[in-house]
Amino acid sequence: MEAQVLAALHEASGPATAAWVQERLGGDLAYTTVMTILSRLHAKQAVTRERSGRAYVWTPAADEAGLAALRMRRVLDGEPDRDAVLTSFVSALSAHDEQVLRALLDRATADDPATADGPVTADGPAPAGGSAAESGTDRRR
């Protein structure tokens, strides 16, 4: 149901009321159910809300890609061994996805003055005299 509500909000030309979302979904859900879903999405930071008179108007917090990234971060944040989860995730990437990820990490590293001097390890910049790959902790794989 959350996905349907988000899809409806993405179709809106601007901020939308809960009543508009309910109508857009065909009226099959009760108004209170739509409000509950919107409130839960707000708690998850997937939507923003703003007062408009006595009601709220709702807006998606990000585009579809941003919302997927938010869900991925929440999953990662909920795991006790982040390194193991990231390792498993990266090792299952397709060749194309791996190239995209490498390019993004390289760009982020080049843009970050704190890491511009050398490779990054899971614990921060690699120690002088050894590469992150040699230490076995290269986040970029």
Results as ranks from 00 to 15, higher is better:
L104K: 05
A103D: 12
R140A: 02
G136N: 09
V90M: 00
R71G: 10
G53W: 08
G118D: 02
L9I: 13
W20V: 14
D63Y: 02
L101C: 02
T17P: 15
A132V: 15
S131G: 14
S91D: 09
S131E: 06
T32C: 13
L67I: 04
A8M: 11
V120K: 00
L6V: 14
H10K: 01
D106F: 00
S131D: 07
L104Y: 02
G78E: 01
R24N: 13
P119A: 13
Q45L: 06
Q22I: 11
A69R: 07
S135M: 15
W20T: 15
S88E: 01
H96N: 03
R71Q: 08
L38E: 07
G66F: 05
L76M: 03
A3S: 10
H96P: 05
R139T: 14
D138H: 14
E23L: 13
D111E: 14
L70N: 05
P127W: 03
A108Q: 02
M1A: 12
A43F: 00
A84M: 01
F89R: 00
A95E: 13
R49V: 15
S94T: 08
L70P: 01
P127G: 13
R140F: 08
D123Q: 11
T115A: 14
L9T: 13
L76F: 01
P60I: 00
A8V: 12
A19S: 14
L70E: 01
G14V: 10
G53P: 03
L25R: 06
